[in-house]
């Protein structure tokens, strides 16, 4: 029915109705509308094409569009569900929904596993873990010798790789996170419940009311 009604508001490519996204995620319709305001801001920061490119994502995270970071790359790749090099609005909302305080812990654990499974093999391997520790050291002021890094990685593997096959599988990861819940602390963003205050979007909200 909506096909006969021509809206004057122009949406970005890949726009999806807030009511649809709210039904699929822990977000309310108002929160999705506010996220659209944030999405528009980020996606217009370098190329105004209504899609978030990697440099726009880096700019939003680091205030520097050229700053590369292994973990930001991983987050971007996971948000880019269609794997076409850009983040569309629906992808942005569905991915951020994992970080909602009301999202299920299981979803956060799975997302973190995929994040750390750098080569998408279905396992976190020792080599990947060492690569991530070195990437973290590279961006921080911590200066640890290779021996210390090896010791930390070995100890972590002894604790997490319960069956001792040299890689952490999803079930081992889940058990490890249950014992160390701080590992997924960064998978919850309290900001997401305040987003309507930070990005009020009166225009879009009135549009939803009009259609009801």
């Amino acid at each position: 029915m909506g096909c006969f009604y021509s809206k004057t508001t122009k949406h970005t490519p890949g726009y999806e109705e807030p009511s649809v996204l709210a039904a699929e995620t822990p977000f309310t319709v108002s929160e999705v509308e506010a996220l659209y305001e944030l999405f528009k801001k980020i996606s217009a920061s370098v190329n105004n094409d209504g899609l978030i490119h990697k440099e726009e994502f880096q700019l939003a995270l680091f205030q520097n569009k050229d700053r590369r970071n292994l973990f930001a790359d991983r987050i971007f790749d996971l948000f880019d569900i269609k794997r076409n090099g850009v983040i569309e609005f629906g992808e942005f909302v569905r991915s951020l929904s994992v970080f909602h305080p009301n999202a299920q812990t299981a979803a956060k654990i799975t997302f973190a596993f995929r994040l750390y499974d750098l080569r998408n093999t279905g396992f976190i391997e020792r080599e990947e873990l060492k690569e991530m520790v070195l990437a973290l050291l590279n961006e921080s002021e911590l200066d640890l010798s290779d021996d210390v890094v090896e010791t930390i990685v070995d100890k972590t593997f002894r604790d997490a790789d319960v069956n001792g096959d040299g890689r952490i599988d999803p079930e081992e990861w889940k058990e490890f996170v249950m014992k160390n819940p701080s590992l997924i602390k960064n998978m919850t963003l309290p900001y997401l419940t305040d987003i309507t205050l930070a990005f009020p979007s009166f225009v879009v909200r009135s549009e939803v009311e009009d259609s009801e």
């Binding site: 980020i42 995270l61 292994l70 873990l129 973290l136 961006e139 100890k155 997490a160 701080s182």
Partner: peptide, 26 residues
């Protein structure tokens, strides 16, 4: 916490690249 006492994932979770709260800063 002394780094040796930490597990590797705790260290990694400190990365700025994993701190998405920066997306919401104006």
């Amino acid at each position: 916490t002394a780094p040796l006492a930490m597990n590797a994932f705790e260290l990694i979770s400190r990365s700025q690249g994993l701190n998405l709260s920066s997306l919401f800063e104006k």
